[in-house]
């Protein structure tokens, strides 16, 4: 196991070395037994016939139950660790990642896009929300002991907290075609102060929510989704994180995936009182993945449950706590929700 640079890396490695040790003992034991028996009981004469042994129930039970207990123990250990590392921290800084043949794009909460690179502050829990534009990829940072497949048509998440400043390998771990082995990059973990400085230096970007607003207008979403709920569609203000009542009787939580579905596939989950059929046209094939991410950022910025802590109207992605969020720069005046 290589360098450890995330909060879970050490725990994974302990499990790894424990299993390696246990395996070495078992393999060594069997190898020694085989070797010893082969010599001790070697055939001494051509017509030798050994005493026939039938087997022994007690022995069979012993070597059924000892491995069983050992397995159960390791399973639990690994499963609990897995649950812990899959669950994102509530105050995680969210970064959007898209994979495509054969490069990575990552978007900082403040809007900068990076290609095949990702900068994160040390000590800050990070959650990556990832999707793919074409085939399946996999975001893998060996030093963080974390990986997750990146699928087209849905979001998957990856959570980590970097613990050591440095630049680490980023690999695509799911075979994705010709240049799969070139779909590599780096993740740079920086001390929070350096990270801020880096952001300032890079900061010429419009925030995602601001870009989302532009798309919202240019795609004509605003004609139906008005702030005052007076349009053909429901208002999106305060929507994010709510329980939505659907026409078919189900209730769903409004999250990224739900919004994505609502835009690409409106007939699938129709809001109660608005159909079916939904009068919203499908945007599948018109809105691309980066625009989708911006639109989601915009809708999130319109408020909702998770938004409260960040303060209403703040365009930064929810969850990115105030200290970690860099100033929104010169564009901040255009960022807020549509007046």
């Amino acid at each position: 196991m290589g360098e450890q640079a995330s909060s879970i890396a050490g725990q994974i490695d302990i499990l790894f070395w424990f299993m390696t040790l246990a395996s070495a003992v078992i393999t060594g034991g069997i190898a020694l037994a085989l070797l010893f028996f082969s010599i001790r009981y070697r055939r001494r004469s051509e017509n030798e016939v050994p005493v026939q042994t039938e087997g022994a129930l007690k022995l069979e039970l012993t070597w059924t139950f000892i491995p069983l207990i050992l397995s159960a123990f390791i399973f639990l250990w690994a499963a609990l660790l897995f649950v812990r590392m899959s669950r994102p921290e509530p105050n995680a800084m969210e970064i959007y990642v898209t994979g495509r043949q054969w490069m990575w794009k990552a978007q900082q909460p403040s809007g900068q896009w990076e290609n095949n690179e990702l900068h994160v502050p040390v000590g800050q829990p990070v959650q990556l929300n990832m999707t793919s534009i074409d085939v399946i990829h996999d975001f893998y940072i060996p030093a963080f002991r974390q990986k997750q497949d990146v699928l087209p048509g849905r979001y998957t998440t990856l959570a980590f907290t970097a613990t050591k400043a440095g630049t680490y390998n980023l690999f695509c771990a799911e075979y994705c075609g010709t240049q799969h082995s070139r779909m590599v990059g780096s993740v740079t973990a920086m001390e929070p102060r350096d990270y801020q400085a880096w952001l300032q230096g890079e900061n010429n970007a419009e925030s995602p929510a601001a870009r989302g607003l532009r798309h919202f207008e240019s795609y004509g979403c605003d004609t139906c989704h008005r702030q005052d709920n007076g349009g053909v569609g429901p208002t999106l203000v305060g929507l994010y994180g709510q329980q939505e009542q659907l026409a078919d009787g189900r209730t769903v939580t409004v999250d990224d995936s739900y919004i994505r579905e609502s835009i690409l596939n409106p007939q699938k989950q129709v809001v109660q009182g608005y159909g079916p059929p939904s009068r919203m046209p499908t945007y599948a094939g018109r809105v691309n993945e980066t625009e989708l991410i911006d639109l989601i950022a915009y809708i999130r910025s319109l408020g909702g449950q998770q938004q409260e802590q960040g303060g209403g109207g703040d365009d930064s992605l929810p969850g990115a706590g105030a200290e970690e969020t860099p100033g929104t720069g010169p564009n901040s005046s255009t960022d807020g929700p549509k007046p």
Binding site: M1, I8, Q11, I12, L15, F16, M19, S23, I26, T27, I30, A31, L34, S71, I74, F75, W77, A78, A79, L81, F82, M85, D138, Y140, P142, R145, Q146, K147, Q148, A173, E174, Y175
Partner: peptide, 26 residues
């Protein structure tokens, strides 16, 4: 027997959830 034991035990590394995250597809 020797090689199968190694093959089988390393299979358990991959069945162990948290460890498989790091090891799968390597």
């Amino acid at each position: 027997i020797g090689l199968f034991v190694v093959g089988g035990l390393t299979g358990l590394f991959l069945a162990a959830l948290a460890l498989d995250v790091h090891l799968s597809d390597t």
